[in-house]
């Protein structure tokens, strides 16, 4: 288990104990974190599991793939340099304490 903190659009903070190996998207759905829609269920089609990764963590994640990059161009909320799709981030002990912000809209 790895502790991940989601910060909602209203600044409410929600920490969850995520299962290692799950995607961040699945961890959010499993723990009832609202604001991660994940319409495609993690198949990298829809760009509705968009998060902003806390600046302290962006460099510690695997880089954005070409597919994810193309999908991020279609997010409903503004794409920022720290935008990621949470279905593409795998929970692992090295990410203990990761903080991500949830945008105001996903579609």
């Amino acid at each position: 288990m790895t502790t991940i903190t989601f910060i909602h659009h209203d600044n409410r903070s929600q920490s969850v104990e995520a299962a290692d190996g799950d995607s961040l998207m699945l961890a959010a759905l499993t723990h009832g974190v609202d604001g991660i829609t994940a319409e495609c269920g993690g198949n990298a089609v829809c760009a509705t599991c968009h998060v902003y990764v806390d600046e302290a963590w962006t460099a510690k994640l695997d880089p954005v793939s070409d597919d994810e990059d193309a999908l991020l161009d279609g997010t409903a909320a503004e794409r920022l340099p720290n935008s990621r799709l949470s279905c593409q981030i795998k929970v692992q002990p090295a990410l203990a304490g990761l903080v991500v912000r949830i945008p105001d809209k996903q579609s």
Binding site: L29, G41, N43, V45, C46, S107
Partner: peptide, 23 residues
């Protein structure tokens, strides 16, 4: 309902490529 994960559009590598148009 939190409906993510339904298989109405399939799942995996063949999951409906036009699902965004449908939605």
């Amino acid at each position: 309902r939190k409906v993510s994960g339904h298989v109405g559009f399939g799942s995996g590598i063949h999951m409906c490529v036009g699902q965004l148009v449908a939605r």
